[in-house]
Design a protein around this nucleic acid. Structure first.
Lengths: 145, 145
DNA sequence: GTGCTTGCAAATCGTTTGCAATAGC
DNA sequence: GCTATTGCAAACGATTTGCAAGCAC
């Protein structure tokens, strides 16, 4: 346990989220394990500490955290959603062979665009995803006011 | 039918893919409908022309096309995979309200980074995904040679 | 006729839903 | 006690798998 539980609790209260024990444990896990875990990975770790822990709670909690901007949902693999506590803008690399997801930094001198390489990983595909509210939906909500 | 079937056939043969009727129809559909369709959307359209068409064939074909670099798999929504024929590097915007996916262009003058807006869409989240073969897997395959 | 492709049906698996039990103010 | 949260079990839905039938060279 690297992260202080007090800080975790404060983080939730500051966001207006009721700091239940389950939520604290999930947030603490995310802070201490910056490995883009799946729901299943989080579940298998936390069920040791909270034997009644359910996957549903983890799904509920992560959805809530995502809505509040505490975590990012990473859908790079297309198989399952992975979660990332670090909301600063950074980038992900998926190995199509082993399935591992790496954090990458484009400002890093190891980024060689001309060779399509980053940190030594060979890039075959690059995509940028933006999420938010589209023009039409923005206008609709304006009209309602 | 906007795209010429002859060109579609040539495209497949050039890639070393056997140009079956099903594959031609799927590739033609993708060329003529740049709307990031799902497997289901493609199926429902093509089943009219080929009543025996199966979803499995569409899954098989799109997986093959993806491996050959003809299509990109878009996993932005996290719910289902969408497909994009345009392999040039461009970007996607998902509306979290209506679920629609827009193509966006960052070199466009409508991109206002400071306001977190693009083409009038409000950006809440931005992610860049790279896919390829990681350093470790590259080394492993080198050693095998 | 051999090998690849197709397509049905069943299985799989991540995720969601319904709902009753529980916890916290 | 009231409201939000938790968590079990069942449902759901996108995708994959097994396998038999069909097609093309």
């Amino acid at each position: 346990m690297i992260t202080n539980m007090k800080h975790i609790k404060k983080e939730l209260i500051d966001q207006g989220i009721k700091p239940t024990y389950q939520r604290l444990c999930i947030l603490e896990y995310l802070h201490d394990n910056l490995v883009h875990p799946t729901v299943d990975i989080i579940y298998n770790k936390l069920v040791n500490r909270i034997p009644t822990m359910s996957r549903t709670t983890i799904y509920n909690t992560l959805k809530l955290f995502s809505k509040m901007g505490i975590v990012n949902e990473i859908t790079i693999s297309g198989i399952e959603t992975r979660y990332d506590i670090n909301c600063e803008f950074h980038h992900h690399f998926l190995c199509k062979k082993c399935g591992k997801i790496y954090d990458v930094d484009l400002t890093n001198p190891c980024f060689q665009m001309e060779q399509k390489k980053i940190d030594g990983h060979k890039i075959y595909e690059a995509q940028s995803y933006f999420k938010g509210i589209c023009k039409k939906c923005l206008e609709k909500s304006k009209n309602k006011k």
